[in-house]
Design a protein around this nucleic acid. Structure first.
Length: 407
RNA sequence: GGGAGUGUGCCCGAGUGGCUAAAGGGGACGGGCUGUAAACCCGUUGGCUAUGCCUACCAUGGUUCGAAUCCAUGCGCUCCCA
């Protein structure tokens, strides 16, 4: 294993908090692999760049020879983590959880080395807890202690409901740490309370407590709220390369460095140089953002794919051209008695607008183009000839080559 | 168990009998500009083959020529007391 100093440098890069650092040094000093825990709840089927932040940190531990333990919270997902929430999570069925968990693991292993990962499901021990067990577990915490946490107290003061089962969530997560004998548990900074509950419970059960490692939350593409599927500001690990590239380009400039530190594969020294270069105006923000987008796409696909994604991006957004690979869409282009087709309905039917009325508004706003030429206002009804085998564009990003059905 | 509130469009939030498809803000989308799907500026934001028609302010019923607005009951949520 690397010397402790070297290990600490890697561990601490990009982290938000390490509680307590002294204990971590002590644990590292024993020169045996640490058990490093990350628990994830399969509440949504797709992982995004925000989830990837702790996973990347896990990978760093893994590469230094520590034993990482990835816990799939299939049991805790039934409760739903209240962290940072202002409302109770909608319940998921066991089937949904099962399904989500599958894709979750698959995507996590794009970052982690599966061969050296201990994968556990917390239903393994949580389902064995009977009521008596649960009660004795609950007796370790007080209501005041749980109510202390920011999200609960906010909800309480704002007269928003807190369901009783949500109180139990931190206990369940803490119990996971006990069961797998965690040395370190990591999570986003919003997880701090849950992580500390793990420490507390371990101590009460006469174990050496875990070290809590928190990572900053990654803001989504809007640059304001944390990346989350429910805010629609996420960059999914399974997004198409062009999509991924474009989404990275859409983050506010101020967020670039944070993305470099938390979501890219670039090492600390390189990022420091970039930061300096930007501050001194030696590096152009657009170039740096492009490099970031390429790096991220490369991490989940390949370098070639990333370069192609960049080319397409330039075609569409820089030169306002039509991309190479426009999807062909077959539509009913049978004209009515007046020899026209209702374009607004067609746009709606292929999913480019949420209603025909919206399609009409888009036409009037100049957002609908055929072969790159904007249609004039009110052209809701058009001659089918003008569109058959031509490229219909709605907004900047939606393209389709329209062909008629063969009757 | 008793009492007090509250429920509006994707979200927040005004509106307390007609001028309300419903102010304002956020978000989203579209256009312009550009170094980007950054920033900034402008526009749009219930549905419908559409100068009109239909559906909408928790639900149902009522008062009224006319209700998001008044009344009744129900449902949801919150708070206080026990």
């Amino acid at each position: 294993m690397l010397p402790i100093k070297e290990q600490l440098k890697v561990i601490k890069s990009g982290v938000d908090g390490l509680i307590p650092e002294k204990l971590l040094i002590e644990k590292l000093g024993r020169n045996t692999p640490l058990r490093v825990k990350l628990g994830v709840d399969p509440t949504a089927p797709d992982l995004h760049l925000g989830h990837a932040v702790p996973l990347r940190k896990m990978r760093q531990f893994q590469d230094m020879g520590h034993q990482i333990v990835l816990i799939i919270g299939d049991a805790t997902a039934l409760i739903g983590d209240p962290s940072g929430r202002n409302a109770t999570r909608p319940p998921l069925t066991k089937d949904q959880i099962e399904e989500n968990a599958q894709t979750y693991v698959e995507q996590a292993f794009k970052i982690l080395d599966p061969e050296r990962t201990e994968l556990r499901w917390n239903s393994e021990w949580i389902y064995d807890l009977d009521l008596a067990g649960l009660l004795s577990l609950a007796s370790n915490f007080t209501v005041a202690r749980i109510l202390e946490r920011d999200d609960f107290s906010k909800r309480y003061h704002n007269q928003q409901p807190i369901a009783l089962h949500e109180f139990l969530y931190p206990l369940m997560q803490a119990y996971d740490s006990v069961m797998i004998h965690a040395d370190v548990e990591m999570g986003g900074s919003d997880q701090l309370f849950n992580l500390l509950a793990g420490r507390e419970l371990m101590e009460k059960m006469q174990m050496e407590p875990q070290v809590c490692l928190t990572l900053p939350l990654l803001e989504g593409t809007d640059g304001i709220q944390k990346m989350s599927k429910s805010y629609g500001n996420y960059i999914g690990l399974t997004d198409a390369p062009e999509e991924m590239f474009g989404k990275v380009m859409s983050i506010p400039d101020e967020l670039m460095l944070k993305y470099y530190r938390l979501a890219s594969t670039e090492d600390v020294d390189t990022i420091d140089k970039i930061e300096q270069g930007l501050a001194e105006d030696r590096l152009h923000p657009n170039k740096i953002k492009r490099a970031l987008a390429r790096n991220i796409v490369t991490a989940y696909y390949t370098e070639d794919v990333a370069m192609f994604a960049e080319e397409q991006f330039d075609r569409v957004f820089k030169s306002h051209d039509i991309p190479d690979d426009v999807e062909e869409v077959v539509c009913d282009l049978t004209p009515n008695d007046e020899g026209t087709i209702y374009l607004a309905a067609l746009i709606h039917s292929i999913g480019f607008a949420s209603s025909a009325a919206e399609a009409r508004r888009l036409i009037d706003g100049g957002g609908v183009k055929i072969d790159g030429n904007a249609l004039p206002e009110k052209s809701y009804h058009i001659d089918p000839e003008t569109i058959t085998n031509h490229v219909l564009q709605v907004g900047k990003r939606k393209f389709a080559r329209i062909t008629g059905a063969h009757n």
